[in-house]
């Protein structure tokens, strides 16, 4: 049995998540990844914004920071730059990271600041009652899209890659074992790493869209996910509406903290001359 207890603030339970919510699965994957990384609890800062996923930090025994809606990555940027030895992990949702916080998300990726952003993507605003989010698939319903949304959805991982992230991976709550491997790799990666976890919201996404219960949703993930290696070989038509999972991007590029330290050293050398 994995020692989850070691990381949980048991006095904070019961948690606020609905029955069947994917947040718990993602949280457990995160804890397994952290355990494997052997980083001390004192050296981990878990930062979040607002939403269901952003309640995660309250339940775990790290340096935990629950910030304002959309701004977790910006808070985390200050924290990381002020204390570079901290391992900073941001937990956020699709709305938090790509709607209200979209600007911070792309710019942190561009800067390639060393942090890991774990995005619980459940295609909906759960906390506020099921409104459509930037990742709600076209045609799917939310409380603010009663006739189905007419907007195209964001590809979060694609956005992260385009914006300059070093490491980008996607998994689902069905593929929980892969998920913790990707989170672990993201944590170890020097640079901006993004892990997108497709996560079920049985209450506010499945119900209006008649997707069944959480088991049906996980079954759907199982049947409709394509490993990235396979996806690269098949036609666009075959990939349509599928979830492409795996390590989507892994690159070496200059990391912001190191570049800043280099700059500071160079400036001070000039001053001393």
């Amino acid at each position: 049995m994995f020692p989850y207890e070691k990381y949980l603030r048991r006095d904070r339970f019961p948690h606020i998540w609905c029955t069947g919510c994917g947040c718990g699965i993602v949280l457990k994957a995160l804890l397994r990844a952290i355990e494997r990384s052997k980083i001390s609890k004192d050296d981990i800062a878990l930062v979040s914004g607002i939403g269901c996923s952003s309640r995660t930090p309250g339940y775990v025994d790290f340096n935990t920071l629950h910030t304002t809606h959309g701004r977790a990555i910006a808070f985390a940027t200050g924290l990381k730059l002020a204390k570079k030895e901290l391992k900073v992990i941001v937990v956020t949702g699709d709305g938090d990271a790509t709607a209200i916080g979209g600007n911070h998300f792309i710019h942190a990726a561009r800067r390639n600041l060393d942090m890991t952003v774990l995005i619980y993507n459940n295609y909906i605003y759960g906390m506020t009652g099921g409104q459509a989010s930037p990742t709600t698939p076209t045609g799917k319903k939310g409380s603010t899209a009663p006739y189905g949304t007419i907007e195209p959805a964001f590809d979060i991982s694609g956005l992260a890659i385009a914006a300059g992230a070093s490491f980008v991976a996607r998994s689902t709550c069905y593929h929980a074992v892969q998920l913790d491997k990707y989170i672990h790799k993201g944590i170890l990666k020097k640079g901006f790493s993004v892990i997108e976890a497709i996560s079920p919201c049985p209450t506010y996404y499945a119900r209006p869209n008649r997707l069944g219960n959480v088991v049906d949703m996980l079954q759907w993930y199982k049947e409709n996910s394509i490993p990235v290696e396979v996806a690269r070989k098949v036609s666009e038509e075959e990939k349509k509406d599928k979830i492409i999972i795996g390590i989507l991007h892994d690159a070496e590029k200059p990391e912001f903290c190191e570049e800043y330290q280099r700059l500071s050293a160079r400036v001070r050398k000039i001053d001393n001359k």
Partner: peptide, 8 residues
């Protein structure tokens, strides 16, 4: 947000 994070 960043200055609050740094101050923490």
């Amino acid at each position: 947000a960043a200055i609050i994070g740094a101050s923490l």
